[in-house]
């Protein structure tokens, strides 16, 4: 699949935003926090979410009709994602208002939990857009929703740690929760890569054309001699060596470095610099991870053009940490 920057940016940014909303909802549930902190965290989260959503519309041919995407929630994960995303603004903004006016804690907690649930639901819907596509074996994997949720939570935790440090608030157990989540995310990603490497697609040029009845087909003439929409959209191929190098970088920046820095941020002296660096590193690592998520994915359409069966490269680098 050809990585579309707007989508990569959308899924990582809004993933982080929803992650932060989710973590914030738990923090609010856990303890009373200064209004300034909650409001700032909300602002950061909603900004990320909004930027992400807006950026996703850049991918559309008709952004002015984007509202129509809310109508088919009964069948379409994309529609559900839209509905959940918009729905999430309600409790989130209400939470902000409640905190700002000093509403009763029960109200704040209720709004926070609603926000958290909707944030998680939105990320889940996003993941299901991909995971539901049978045409792309790299996405049609039950680990994909888990990954999206874990990576969202991880981004949220890292952001929360940074904000806590910035407000000089105590982190309590948060760094250790973060370490656990980063480790599980890394573990799931590793399992995902393993599974993908093992995966043998049921589809091949033979089944795509039915010519497996006769023997082994190969491309003689493409339908057209120049590129077309399908090749532009699905024809991206990343070299195997390049991909494994990028995987290692992604692991290091998305998991390795944040893991170490999250632990380090437990030491108050290092809290702010470590948390800041962890956010920056994770942002870079996650964009890389998401880029690979696209770049390594193969669509069945490419079979018609002689592309290999939709399984990504076999190399499975070991996760750090």
């Amino acid at each position: 699949m050809t990585p579309a920057f707007s989508i990569i940016f959308f899924t990582t940014a809004s993933g982080a935003g929803y992650g932060l909303l989710f973590v914030l909802s738990l923090l609010v549930f856990d303890r009373a926090l200064p209004a300034a902190f909650v409001l700032t965290a909300l602002a950061v989260a909603l900004t990320l979410v909004s930027i992400g959503l807006v950026s996703s519309t850049f991918h559309l041919g008709h952004p002015e009709r984007a509202w129509r995407a809310l109508t088919q929630w009964r069948s379409s994960w994309l529609s559900r994602e839209g509905v959940a995303a918009l729905a999430c603004y309600g409790p989130a903004l209400a939470l902000g208002a409640a905190v700002a006016v000093g509403a009763p804690r029960e109200t704040v907690i209720a709004l926070a939990l609603a926000t958290g649930v909707l944030a998680a639901a939105t990320v889940y819907c996003t993941s299901m857009i991909y995971a539901s596509l049978k045409t792309i074996a790299a996405w049609h994997d039950r680990r994909v929703p888990a990954l999206y949720l874990l990576l969202g939570a991880m981004s949220g935790l890292l952001l929360a740690r940074f904000l806590l440090a910035a407000f000089a608030l105590p982190a309590h157990g948060l760094p250790w929760v973060t370490v656990a989540i980063v480790l599980s995310a890394a573990q799931v990603k590793r399992a995902y890569w393993r599974a993908q490497a093992e995966h043998r697609s049921a589809s091949s040029l033979g089944t795509a054309t039915g010519l497996d009845r006769l023997g082994r087909p190969r491309v003689l003439q493409p339908a057209h001699t120049e590129r077309n929409f399908l090749l532009k959209e699905f024809g991206f191929e990343v070299g195997r060596r390049h991909a494994s190098r990028l995987r290692r970088l992604a692991i290091a920046f998305a998991f390795g470095v944040p893991l170490a820095l999250a632990a380090l941020s437990a030491l108050p002296a290092f809290a702010l610099p470590a948390a800041t660096a962890a956010v920056v590193s994770a942002a870079f690592g996650l964009v890389l991870e998401r880029w690979l998520f696209f770049a390594e994915a193969r669509h069945t359409v490419m079979l018609y053009y002689g592309g290999a069966a939709p399984a990504p490269s076999r190399s499975v680098p070991t996760t750090g940490g």
């Binding site: 041919g61 008709h62 009709r65 379409s76 857009i129 399908l230």
Partner: peptide, 27 residues
């Protein structure tokens, strides 16, 4: 007239039967 040009349908079709009109911005 309803299509927003999200291309998701082209991702879902195994056969490459959807043709996005880059100029019109619709599938």
């Amino acid at each position: 007239d309803k299509c927003i040009g999200c291309k998701l349908c082209s991702w879902a079709c195994p056969y490459g039967a959807r043709e996005y009109d880059e100029d019109a911005g619709v599938m």
